[in-house]
Design a protein around this nucleic acid. Structure first.
Length: 665
RNA sequence: GCGCCUGUAGCUCAGGGGAUAGAGCAACGGUUUCCUAAACCGUAGGUCGCAGGUUCGAAUCCUGCCAGGCGUACCA
């Protein structure tokens, strides 16, 4: 946060305060930087707007009563222009209340600024953002939207703060799934369907082959699983007997419970696997196919290997399949308003892989183990495998080659991977290997996020157990948004005012916005429970509420026939006499702080929380402070200016989340 | 077994060393001759999983335990 602090003219109140305190603390400590992080917005309005909490630890360090230390610092502190006289409270809290006149002036500056006077980063960095990364020909699902939406928002935010950002979509266009599609194409193609809609047919082929391969693997794994169950059953019985003999020993009882649990888990897995096998075998079509392709697993690997080794026909097919698949993915990006600066898929790095492995070996970073080439890392139980026994490369190899390429081409300061938390081990290994390879000055971050759950607390699936397609998800959100827009319009005091076609345009913005916002608003490390009703609520922390607040502002301008350009140029002053006006203004002026925090922690939910706060304060202002019917012209102008600032802050903030606004809803 | 994540109000979630732990939904009560009432204001609701420890101060940091999820060398 401190590294982004602006100059004295900055709108970032916190940064200004930190500078003032830095000067006041200089005679007392060598480096006050740590203490300055202890200045923060007050938790309770009665303690003012900001509070400095460093006097307690500092008093301890200096061996003086904290209250005296606080008083000493306050005596040296020069904030007369900025704050009311600071107060020392409790054990040594320094409470600061920003002067209304200062707030009004700062608001005036924000008004005159394109970018709402948000301070750009003092030291711009180069970021590579790796997000979305769908697998070609595998349908995108609800997990991909989270990566896409979080990544897109971080991209927008970092760019807005003045950083150089390269958004690179690392598409899965070279993996085993192509072996499956090629095998399917050669054996099960419905040519008519392919000609009509290539992607749909390729998707069908992928799912069919994938199912047959899984079926085969399941069947092959049954004996081992049964054996494991027998062993576990014996173990469980042994533990149970031991527990019976010494009932007082808690550890033994616990072990017995655990063994029993393991057994149940294995039995459930067996049952599930058997049911899956039965499902195929009871299906006359599928069982015939399964019987006719008994080596399908090996054949698929062979097709993949042929592709990777430059086989003419497979390469030709790959080139044929790729464009329609990419176009299909692009359709979703267009609808979401998501863009990338580069789309360099796995295939792009194909040529580099042998060189990467050779270099890792020759430099002693990787070595052979069980026929595979591995990078063993201190503190890691498992190595990162970069070449399989059969000579094939893995995604870790590609990831290393990708880091190498990115360093050569962009020399980034940081690479951020917005990927499901389940891959955290992989990234730990990858980052360790990259550091061993010499990329130790580079910030490598796994921006992990949790799973999207359904109402039942299980991963979000349809009733029939399929993963939910993105397209359908969007359609449903938009359909429900249309209902919200329609009923909202009907309930307006002056009656409905939006034409049917316009309602549909609005519903698209509201529906996609709701979906994105839901992904952004929870702390990304935790799982979140998906609910259309909650995400489209007009109340609470939702995009809809924010969009509604924006539309209410715009409605005032429309109804009052206000020319916003003229208003801004009018030279009118902002006056903060009413508490709701003041609270709104200081909220708006904290935009810069919210963005700095969002960027520092790579957490868009800090920005959503901020916008919710602003929208909330606006609603209060809206209730308590008539604008068009303000008591006098001066107040009316001031309130209109506040409305304009609010609208611009909400619009800009939502834009950084990748969410649009509408003039009416 | 080991590793990572999670556990906060009935539900969904914020807060991740600072003063009395917050919001939305659900419940209860109030506000409309007034710029969008699907709004706003208020009431009620909590041993912050449990137990220790560090600290002037712990929901927050450390240790142990309990519960759930995920992962655990040649898939991505």
């Amino acid at each position: 946060m401190l590294k982004n602090s602006g100059g004295p003219s900055s709108m970032n109140i916190l940064a200004v305060l930190q500078e003032r305190f830095r000067a006041a603390l200089a005679p007392l400590v060598e480096d006050p930087t740590d203490l300055l992080t202890m200045i923060r917005p007050s938790g309770d309005p009665k303690f003012g707007d900001y509070q400095a909490n460093f006097a307690m630890p500092l008093g301890k360090k200096l061996g003086k009563p904290p209250h005296d230390v606080a008083a000493e610092v306050v005596a040296k502190l020069e904030v007369d222009d900025l704050c009311d006289p600071p107060e020392v409270a409790g054990p040594g809290f320094i409470n600061l209340r920003v002067k209304d006149s200062w707030l009004a002036e700062a608001a005036g500056r924000a008004l005159a600024s394109e970018r709402l006077d948000v301070t750009p980063a003092a030291q711009p960095r180069t970021y590579i953002l790796d997000y979305s990364s769908p697998n070609v020909a595998k349908p995108m699902h609800v997990g991909h939207i989270r990566s896409t939406v979080i990544g897109d928002s971080l991209k927008r935010t970092l760019k807005f703060l003045g950083h150089r950002v390269i958004a690179d979509n690392h598409i899965g266009d070279w993996g085993t799934q192509f072996g499956m599609i090629i095998y399917g194409f050669k054996n099960f193609l419905d040519r008519a369907a392919y000609q009509q809609e290539a992607v749909t047919e390729l998707g069908r082929l992928y799912r069919l082959v994938n199912r047959l391969v899984s079926h085969l693997e399941a069947k092959q794994s049954l004996p081992a699983l049964r054996e494991q169950i027998e062993k576990q059953r014996a173990e469980s019985a042994r533990q149970a007997a031991a527990a019976k003999q010494t009932p007082a020993d808690k550890n033994i009882a616990k072990a017995a419970r655990r063994a029993e649990g393991n057994l149940k888990e294995l039995e459930a897995a067996l049952k599930e696997r058997e049911a899956g096998i039965a499902a195929i075998e009871n299906d006359p079509e599928l069982s015939k196919l399964a019987a006719a392709h008994p080596d399908i697993d090996k054949s698929v690997l062979a097709e993949t290997a042929k592709l990777h080794h430059g086989d003419e026909e497979n390469l030709r097919l790959w080139r044929e399949f790729l464009p329609p698949c990419l176009a299909d993915i692009q359709k979703i990006y267009d609808r979401l308003g998501v863009t990338f600066d580069e789309t360099l898929g796995e295939s792009f790095y194909h040529d580099r892989l042998p060189g990467v492995v050779e270099e890792m070996i020759s430099r002693g970073i990787a070595r052979e183990s069980d026929g595979a080439i591995c990078v063993f890392l201190a503190g890691q139980p498992a190595p990162l495998v970069i070449r399989k026994q059969d000579g094939a490369f893995l995604y870790g190899t590609t990831d290393l080659a990708t880091i190498q390429y990115r360093m050569e081409r962009w020399k980034p300061d940081a690479i951020l991977y917005v990927v499901d938390h389940r891959q955290s081990l992989h990234f730990e290994q990858l980052f360790g290997a990259a550091r061993a390879w010499g990329y130790d000055q580079l910030e490598l971050q796994h921006i992990a996020f949790g799973t999207v759950l359904g109402d039942d607390g299980r991963p979000f699936k349809t009733r029939s157990g399929d993963t939910v397609g993105l397209e359908g998800l969007l359609d449903e959100a938009v359909r429900r948004a249309l209902e919200v827009v329609r009923t909202g319009d009907e309930h307006k005091p002056s009656g409905a005012e939006i034409a049917a076609e316009q309602q549909e345009v609005i519903a698209e913005v509201v529906g996609t916005g709701a979906l994105k916002y839901a992904d952004l608003a929870t702390n990304r490390t935790s799982d979140y429970t998906f609910s259309y009703d909650r995400m489209l609520a007009m109340n609470g922390n939702t995009a809809t509420y924010m969009q509604y607040a924006y539309a209410r502002v715009r409605s005032i301008f429309a109804r009052g026939d206000v020319d916003v350009a003229k208003l801004r140029a009018s030279g009118g002053a902002i006056d903060l006499a009413h508490p709701a006006e003041r609270s709104l203004a200081i909220g708006i002026l904290q935009f810069s702080e919210a963005l700095a925090q969002t960027a520092a922690d790579y957490r868009p939910n800090l920005l959503t929380a901020y916008l919710y706060e602003v929208a909330n304060r606006y609603s209060t202002f809206f209730e308590q402070c008539p604008v068009l019917k303000a008591p006098d012209e001066k107040t009316k102008t001031s309130r209109l200016l506040l409305c304009d600032l609010t609208a611009r802050t909400l619009k800009q903030g939502l834009e950084l989340l990748g969410i649009e606004v509408v003039e009416k809803m």
